[in-house]
C-alpha cells in the first residue's frame, strides 16, 4: 500500500488507545478486551511484538519501573497517528452508511 498513513491493525489501534493512560502489558490486554466487549483478545506474544515495534517508531514510550512493572504511554507522534486513523475510520463509516442507506433495499 502506498498511502501516507497506511491503516493500523486492529490490535495496534487498540493498544495505542489503551496507552492514552500509562499501562503495562496486562492492563492493555484487559482494557482492550473490555472496550471491545470481549471480541478482541490480544495474545501476549502479539502485544509484546507490537510494543517493541511501537517503541522503535516512537509512537509510545516506556515509563520508569523495573521489568515486571514497566509501563508505557502514547507519545505526541503516536497521538497524531491515532487522529489520522480515526479520520480514516470515519471516512469508511460515513461512506458505508451513505451507500447502504441510498440502496433503497432497506426501506
Amino acid at each position: 500500500m502506498t498511502q501516507e498513513h497506511p491503516p493500523l491493525t486492529e490490535g495496534v489501534y487498540y493498544i495505542l488507545l489503551a496507552l492514552f493512560d500509562a499501562r503495562h502489558g496486562y492492563g492493555i490486554m484487559q482494557l482492550v478486551e473490555e472496550m471491545s466487549n470481549g471480541r478482541v483478545r490480544l495474545g501476549a506474544g502479539t502485544i509484546y511484538g507490537a510494543i517493541k515495534t511501537l517503541l522503535e517508531r516512537g509512537w509510545i514510550e516506556a515509563l520508569g519501573g523495573d521489568g515486571r512493572k514497566k509501563e508505557y504511554i502514547i507519545t505526541d507522534s503516536g497521538k497524531k497517528v491515532i487522529e489520522y486513523e480515526i479520520l480514516r475510520l470515519r471516512e469508511l463509516f460515513d461512506n458505508g452508511i451513505r451507500i447502504t442507506k441510498d440502496d433503497g433495499t432497506n426501506g
Binding site: T9, G11, R41, L42, G43, A44, G45, T46
Partner: peptide
C-alpha cells in the same frame, strides 16, 4: 483465566 493464544493476529 480465559483462552490462551500467544499470537492473536495473522501478521504476528
Amino acid at each position: 483465566k480465559g483462552p490462551f493464544e500467544l499470537f492473536s493476529d495473522s501478521s504476528s
